[in-house]
Design a protein around this nucleic acid. Structure first.
Lengths: 337, 337
DNA sequence: CTGTTAGCGCTTTCAC
DNA sequence: GTGAAAGCGCTAACAG
């Protein structure tokens, strides 16, 4: 049997109320008594029963993190960011990625409206009707890591995709002299993908370059998708000078196809990506890409959530963006040289 | 305020005990009453208070997963394996990777000896004194994912490193005709590394090949470490025909150095790895490596743990190994052709 | 079959 | 300052 405040009370010759007060370091206890109690607790190796505390406090100090199928390294940084932040505030995190046994919706339902977690962070590329419904009905605070969304009622944090893509394209044009720039878009349902495309398109237009329909192809954010898209681009009579893949995995697909054709990156054609996954620093040539601060993404979501859990929770929803930066690799070159 | 069984009892004109029984689907309740209660609960959107349940059951249905700094993709598969398994049994998982704010020991202390989790899975390359102490003192069941260890008192699951390395080396010798095989070892303190070395050494000896001290170099399981080690090997007058890197990250370091020298893999020199990380299928040429079933590793650890949590917990410690397989890439060639 | 009751271990009024 | 007692929401004897 574990030892409880009852036991401590008996040994210290005080009531359990006093023990509780001492343990919680309240200053309504005589210093001497407090010290005595603390000593006994120490000696007995007392550990408070979390469940009992939760019950009376109506709080578990646990938050849930719901995310799509966890795979690859992208999510680990986010998990780490969240964990680090909430740990400092005395919280723990339950990870619920969707897998063969459980969908995102099931995870959400499991976490919301119950005494199980104090709040949930959801990472999802785009919010569909069902999820939106759940989020607005939730009785526990929620913050969402997502692309642009139409639900104005919840805290969100997102990547500044537009700025990232815009900067990258501008950079390619101004510093490197590229003008024939193709893009491999992301999935239709993915908001991040849309914003990246917008940044691409507007950067071109702003620099006086017209969009070329042939150089805009679809991808699905997988390496295989990148290969297919790249093959299409490479088969064009009028090839682009460089390919902007909307994420790094697709950029790696491009690497494969271009290498397969016996062509050189960046001499024959350039490739740039988006995300700055670990891989992009491993492959040769190193990929020029847009850095996404994944850990910060998690931290920010955690910050918003804990604010709401511990605050009065009556402030307006906030929407923050984490900004991106450009990582210069060797996958593009200066056309002016 | 959330609705409780009290409220349901009132509306159903029964006692809270009956409500509790109905909700827990016990068959000591008249079907009709049960149905009525369930209906009311449904209507009221009743959700049981997890904390209260935990308190009386002395059980939280949460397990903790403690691991070193989470980074890269290796751990995500394990997390997934654990999560999938325990979810099916009605459990959730709290992930506690060590980070700037918290060490492995702190996480362990936080989880053990308290009413917080029902059990913990620890992943750690080798068990030091302090950790071993904690593990044996733990009042909650524990299972450890680790290399060989001297603590016979706890359930462990490990990778069959010896078999993996042995098979790989035998394969290189018999099918490909390699005889001059170098190894980049792993860290001194890492048990997996030792076993892999043993597999390497014994496979050579069994096939009548003597160990060459010059071809045994140290590494630290990082890409950079692989680079350094590879550079040393490449600077030898008597170069090996192939390098067995004790893990894939170091193999990638070899790729970098060999490519940098303008040499070809596998024509000038072969490279093989261990782990079968995602990356090994991405790089060109695809890496020939030893497949480690990471997801199974997690599942197995979860299985052992839940057995103990839900069983009588008085059986002897079990030690299971998950076996490996060889993944054939294009990073080595048939020397006989 | 169902109700009464006693806790699970802790926090928190309300008295003294 | 400290104690008595109520109660968080639920389960599980024990009676009937």
């Amino acid at each position: 049997m574990n030892i409880t405040i009852k036991e401590i009370a008996k040994r210290a010759n005080v009531s359990i109320a006093t023990v509780s007060r001492a343990l919680n370091n309240q200053d309504t206890v005589r210093p001497k008594t407090k010290k005595a109690i603390l000593n006994i607790a120490e000696e007995l190796n007392y550990i408070p029963n979390v469940g009992a505390r939760n019950l009376v406090n109506q709080k578990t100090n646990i938050i849930g993190f719901v995310l799509p199928e966890i795979q690859g390294e992208f999510y680990t940084d986010i998990i780490k960011g969240i964990d680090e932040y909430v740990y400092n505030a005395g919280y723990h995190m339950i990870v619920a990625s969707s897998h063969s046994q459980r969908t995102i919706v099931e995870s959400l339902v499991g976490f919301m409206n119950r005494s199980f977690v104090d709040g949930v962070i959801l990472m999802i590329p785009s919010i569909n009707e069902r999820v939106g419904e759940l989020l607005t009905e939730s009785t526990v605070p929620v913050s969402v890591i997502t692309g642009k969304n139409k639900f104005d009622t919840i805290d969100t944090v997102s990547i500044d995709n537009y700025q990232g893509a815009y900067s990258m394209i501008s950079y390619l044009i101004r510093h490197y002299g590229y003008r024939k720039i193709a893009i491999i878009r992301g999935p239709e349902t993915n908001n991040d993908a849309h914003e990246r495309f917008d940044g691409y398109a507007e950067a071109l237009i702003y620099n006086g370059i017209e969009l070329n329909e042939n150089w805009i192809v679809e991808g699905d954010f997988t390496q295989r998708g990148g290969e297919l898209a790249c093959s299409r681009l490479m088969s064009l009579l009028d090839r682009p000078e460089i390919i902007f893949a909307s994420n790094d995995m697709m950029a790696l697909g491009c690497y494969k196809v271009i290498n397969g054709l016996g062509l050189s990156i960046p001499n024959d054609i350039g490739v740039v990506g988006f995300d700055h996954i670990f891989l992009s620093d491993i492959v040769l040539p190193h990929l020029t890409t847009v850095h996404v601060p994944k850990s910060e993404l998690g931290q920010e979501a955690a910050r918003l959530l804990l604010d709401r859990i511990n605050g009065n929770n009556d402030f307006k929803p906030r929407h923050t963006k984490v900004s991106t930066g450009i990582i210069i690799g060797q996958s593009c070159r200066n056309l002016n040289e």
